[in-house]
């Protein structure tokens, strides 16, 4: 409870630092903020090229790029935020050691700036959906309205993971490399480029279900691409993952807070 109070107290700080991050990231680059939009588009084109031209996927009914888009965006939000969170504290050592600074703000700033990127990419996804709809390849579903809800749940989940890895990697530097590799693997064991239902082996499917990102990605695909509500199991899983991850994040952070300034 105390942690939540302190978060509320630091909301201005987190907002200001997020704005700073976003500004600083694009200052000096010619296209500036446009990169936030261009990055997912370019990524999408690459994957579309690979999976429609080189390795055509027949399993997904409908425009494959849209399916891909629905899964890649939340995955990128998760992986980029968590990966950056691992260094969020150690790269701001000056703040932790020299200023009375709430360390938990650092991973949360990372999460919120990636959330902004994610949110900015959403209109592109909607525009693409609109374009396909005009071409009568797909219809726009009302379930798109559920996306903000999913984003909130996912943000909570990502924030918990980010806080955990941010504080733990100060003491255990190898964590960053471990996570980098896990993310590579994670991309493929999350049903982003394929449908989970198309996996024939039952144990493998069960394994995929264990991946906490699976229910999130599947639900995004449900509401954005397939136009139906997320499954009950997935919904329950998402809520429990979000809560569990937050609890773990606060617990680990609270445990490590006192030694952070010393261990950096």
């Amino acid at each position: 409870m105390n942690e939540l109070k302190s978060l509320y107290r630091h909301r201005q700080l987190i907002a200001a630092l997020t704005a700073r991050d976003l500004k600083a990231r694009y200052r000096g680059s010619i296209l500036g903020f446009f990169w936030s939009l261009a990055n997912p588009l370019l990524l999408l084109s690459v994957y579309t090229l690979v999976f429609t031209v080189f390795f055509p996927q027949q399993a997904v009914k409908g425009p494959y790029p849209l399916f891909l888009f629905a899964g890649i965006l939340p995955w990128t939000f998760f992986s980029a935020a968590v990966l950056e969170a691992t260094t969020s504290i150690s790269s701001n050592a000056g703040l932790i050691k020299k200023v009375m600074f709430p360390a938990e703000a650092l991973p949360l700033v990372v999460v919120s700036s990636h959330l902004v990127h994610f949110a900015l990419a959403m209109p592109i996804l909607l525009a693409a959906t609109g374009a396909f709809a005009v071409a009568h390849q797909i219809s726009i579903h009302w379930t798109i309205a559920l996306v903000p809800l999913l984003m909130i749940l996912q943000t909570l989940f990502v924030a918990g993971v980010a806080m955990t890895v941010a504080s733990a990697s100060v003491l255990f530097r190898d964590l960053r490399d471990i996570i980098t590799n896990l993310m590579q693997l994670g991309f493929f064991i999350t049903p982003i480029i394929y449908l989970i239902g198309n996996i024939q082996s039952r144990p493998l499917r069960a394994l995929l279900r264990l991946n906490p990102m699976t229910p999130f990605v599947v639900s995004y695909q449900d509401v954005l691409f397939f136009g139906h509500l997320p499954g009950l199991a997935d919904s329950l899983l998402m809520v429990s993952y979000a809560l569990a991850s937050l609890a773990l994040g606060f617990l680990v952070f609270e445990r490590l807070r006192d030694v952070l300034a010393e261990a950096i």
Partner: peptide, 14 residues
């Protein structure tokens, strides 16, 4: 390192 993380988590101490 890992021992450090473990003891820090368990005892809040380095």
């Amino acid at each position: 390192q890992f021992a450090t993380l473990k003891s820090a988590l368990l005892k809040r101490d380095l």
